[in-house]
């Protein structure tokens, strides 16, 4: 597919959306992955970047499973997203 690309959630800009492919990698702590999952950031869920904070766009707020979740880009980088354009 040409119009799809895999990126880290932390690399997305306001208005971009996609679906989560993978949460966490072998280096990330289980606790952190758990917290991300508990907030609804799960594989298969659709995410959209709704807001970027002032002074550099970090943290960001994403819409996932009907809720608006704020997180820093360093944590968002643990989430791999398939972006539709």
């Amino acid at each position: 597919m040409i119009n799809e690309r895999k990126v880290r959630l932390g690399d997305l800009k306001k208005g971009e959306k996609g679906s989560i492919v993978e949460v966490g990698n072998i280096y990330s702590s289980q606790e952190l992955i758990k917290r991300l999952l508990q907030m609804g950031l799960l594989e298969g869920a659709r995410v959209e970047v709704m807001h970027e904070a002032p002074f550099g766009g970090d943290p960001m707020a994403v819409k996932v499973r009907g809720s608006l979740i704020a997180l820093r880009r360093s944590e968002a980088d643990l989430i791999e997203v398939l972006v539709y354009e």
Partner: peptide, 10 residues
Amino acid sequence: KKPILLMELP
């Protein structure tokens, strides 16, 4: 550790 910000905006 660097604090984590992970919260719902209700």
